[in-house]
Every structure is written in structure tokens, then in C-alpha cells.
Simulated scan of single mutants.
Amino acid sequence: MDYELAIENAPETVPEGTGIMLLHPSTGETDRLDTDFFKTDTDHLFILSTRTTAREVQQKLEYYEVDESRATILDTLSIERGYSRRSSDNVRYVSSPDDLDGMVEAIRTFLETHDGKLRISVDSVTEMAYYADEERTREAVEQILDLLREHDAIGLFHVAEEVHDQSVLDDYRDLFDGVIHLTEDGTVTCDFS
């Protein structure tokens, strides 16, 4: 089963189990690429948000006209920021922003309880490492990539390039099947193996 990619300069389709690294500047506008990833060929989507609250994610989906009824959002920040948390059918929470096990488990549950074409967005790996550490974050990313392959899903993983050492970025590149590189001026280039 192939998935369409509606992202400029990317292949038209990628096979199930594909993990894609979205490498971007810290101030880069990733919302357009993220929502382009969701708009096509998707039955259900899961957004692991370590950078914004569920409410902000919902506003982004609405603005970019992504069907919110297909989305499950895992909010890792509201607890940290002291906001009220009301779980619903499509909004979940973890106990803290460094609860990587809880994040992986939430993705596992989503993949096991949904059928069809499934997409995952991890926004962002950089923030996961900020709250936890590089080693634990890498292990969590590896576990999520294994889950994508096991459940025939695909995923987009945001990484801010200036924040990590080059050796860490190189290690991440090796994990993924493709890299979408967003530059400061908004140029998008892609490298898929």
C-alpha cells in the first residue's frame, strides 16, 4: 500500500512504513508542510504535539482546512503550562512533557485501534529532547518508527536543525527513509532513499 505525498519536490507516493524527517530552521514555518502531509490519502491522523497545545493544533487544522474529525491529538504541554485539561474523543494528554513512554504508548494505542491509511506527525523531536534528553528521545523515535512499519502507517518527524549537534542530526538522518529540508527562505528540498 502506497501513500500519496502532496509536498513539493517530494515523491508522489511513499510505501507504508515510511518515516520522514522534516528538517527545518527553528523559526521555520512548518505548518503548511505538516498540514499538506495530512490532507491527502489519510483515513486517520495522530499528532504528537510537544511544541503547541491541543487548542493551537486544532486552530492550525481548521485554518489549513484539514478534517479535524479524523485527527487524534496528544497534548504534552498543557500540564506543564498549568492549563486545564479536558480529554475528549480526539484529544489526549500525557503526565508530563518528558513522558516519552506515555507518548509511544499513545501512538501504539492509536495504531492498534484505527484502520485504513494512518499518518503520524511528531512535532517535534527537538522539543522531546529538550524535555527528556537526546538518548531517550532517539529510543522513542526508533520505537515509533517500528510501530509505523508494524501497522503500515507513515510518519513525519519535525527536527530543528540549529538546535542539535551535526552528529545527532546525522544519526537521525540514518533512521529515516526520507528527509524534507525546509530552509529559512521557505525553499523545500527532498532526499528519499
Rank of each mutant, 00 (worst) to 15 (best):
I107H: 00
S121H: 05
E105T: 10
S121N: 13
R108M: 03
R86W: 05
D98A: 10
V14D: 12
T40E: 15
R86E: 14
T113W: 08
L45G: 12
D123A: 06
A54W: 06
E62K: 13
S26W: 09
R108W: 01
T72R: 07
V66S: 07
L61Q: 08
Y93H: 09
V57I: 08
S78D: 02
T50R: 01
L33T: 14
Y83H: 14
T18S: 10
I47Y: 15
E68S: 11
G28F: 02
R32W: 08
D34F: 00
A106V: 05
D67H: 06
D115W: 08
H114E: 14
G17A: 05
D75K: 04
D31N: 14
L77M: 13
T35N: 10
D98V: 03
T30A: 13
L111K: 10
V91F: 02
R108N: 12
S78F: 01
T52S: 14
E56S: 12
E56Q: 13
I120H: 04
L33A: 02
V57T: 11
L23W: 04
H114P: 14
T76M: 07
Y63M: 13
T109G: 00
R55Y: 11
V14K: 12
M103E: 14
N90F: 03
R86M: 11
D31P: 00
P97V: 01
R51H: 10
T42A: 09
L118Y: 00
I47Q: 10
T13W: 03
S49L: 06
T52G: 01
V57R: 03
D41Y: 02
D31H: 13
A54G: 10
E65S: 15
Y64Q: 12
G17L: 01
M21G: 01
V66Q: 07
Y83Q: 14
R108S: 15
G17T: 07
R81N: 11
R119H: 06
T126R: 05
A54L: 05
R32G: 00
S69I: 03
L33F: 07
K39Q: 13
S69R: 07
D31R: 15
T42D: 07
T53G: 11
G116L: 04
D31Y: 12
D99C: 03
Q59D: 11
V94W: 03
